[in-house]
Design a protein around this nucleic acid. Structure first.
Lengths: 209, 209
DNA sequence: CAGCAACCTTGAACATCGTTCAATAATTAT
DNA sequence: ATAATTATTGAACGATGTTCAAGGTTGCTG
């Protein structure tokens, strides 16, 4: 009993690693079950003993990517201990760099759509939520008056904005933006967003202008 | 000769409209050539007399969507004539509303990937570039000192940031953000970005902080 | 109007997917 | 050792985008 299960788990790990390599080199669209089976040395049908379907496989790879991203962001926060503002800038740049260095794996996380009427399992959404905590701490230092919920919303807004810049910036579709230029633009806009948010917070809620 | 060509063009228009309806109701992944052929009343193979492949079809639908988006943004700019800041906020909100009301068509533009080694035709990239002009004008009013190239970069950064907020905000994947809340968040962040950019422009280039 | 060439349309066929499943092999329990 | 359970296989299924030879239409010409 134990022998069979061990082998199974080993194969499962191999499968996920092979899928990761395949996505990294050929993109999400280049992930093929038959190629995976050949790579890990089993029949194509056997893939479905290790994993329910390709959706799960992609999610498992995404989980690993998310973990590495988390580590990259942690490292960015740890380096030096500058102001909360600059910490947020560093996180944004680190996000940009990670996306550039892991382009296809990073894209796969956002390109992938579950097959109709089946939704993302809990363990996968939990993974994603973890990311915001890096942004949350510096933000809390900058806006001590705000409650946890409000901070959470601001954190998601900031993340989304930076994500958008990275996503469209790394797209080949439009004129390719050179990476250094993109990093600079991100730094400028993150500083601007924080400055702007703090200025408005300082003078309190009021009419538009 | 003319009769045949007329029919062809009519069918072609029907095809694109049918594809548009199909993407709108079933998403990009729900676009099937056989269903399209049945809908416009021709053999499945005939689709390839009207269009080179599905890539072109999706791009043609995208072109129409982009045109309607352009009109929506134009209308947002035209309504009243507030400050350039508030014009930019209106554009961002209009972008958000358009995406929400045309969710699948809007998503299709960004989800679609050309098949390998074939790249987006010129007429399609031109369509996309047109969008920035809405952002460009108010920005130019706010930053008279900046050159056209610098303004173009800032415009793209702003657009990308708002796009990110809309894209992740409308995603069901994470906790669904109610639309009014999303609109409010976008308005807040756009104002903050502009405030922050202007503040830094006013005191001129300098060290970080 | 008849004949002919150019073009169009058709739908069957092909290649490639993800996925399933009955048959076979391997492993475990008795 | 033998039976029972479980795992693995690879052929087959159903979709799907795309192609193409066969047959049908159209429009020009004598």
């Amino acid at each position: 009993m134990t022998k069979a299960l061990e082998r199974r788990e080993k194969l499962r790990a191999d499968l996920i690693l092979a899928a990761e390599r395949m996505i990294a080199t050929r993109g999400l669209a280049g992930l093929k079950t038959r190629d995976l089976a050949r790579e890990i040395g089993c029949a194509n049908g056997a893939v479905y003993n290790l994993v329910a379907d390709v959706d799960e496989l992609v999610l498992r790879v995404g989980s690993r990517t998310l973990l590495r991203l988390d580590q990259a962001l942690s490292a960015a926060v740890r380096a030096g201990n500058p102001s909360p503002q600059e910490t947020l800038v560093r996180i944004a740049i680190a996000y940009c760099d990670f996306a550039a260095e892991n382009l296809e794996l990073w894209r796969a996380m956002f390109e992938h759509r579950m097959e109709p009427d089946k939704d993302v399992p809990d363990w996968s959404v939990d993974d994603q939520m973890q990311l915001f905590r890096h942004i949350y701490a510096p933000l809390a230092a900058l806006f001590p008056k705000r409650g946890t919920e409000e901070l959470g919303i601001t954190a998601r807004s900031l993340f989304s904005a930076v994500h958008g810049m990275v996503a469209l910036g790394l797209e080949q579709r439009l004129v390719a933006v050179p990476l250094p230029a993109l990093r600079k633009e991100i730094a400028i806009l993150v500083r601007a967003m924080i400055d702007g948010l703090m200025a408005r917070a300082a003078q309190g809620p009021r009419e538009n202008s």
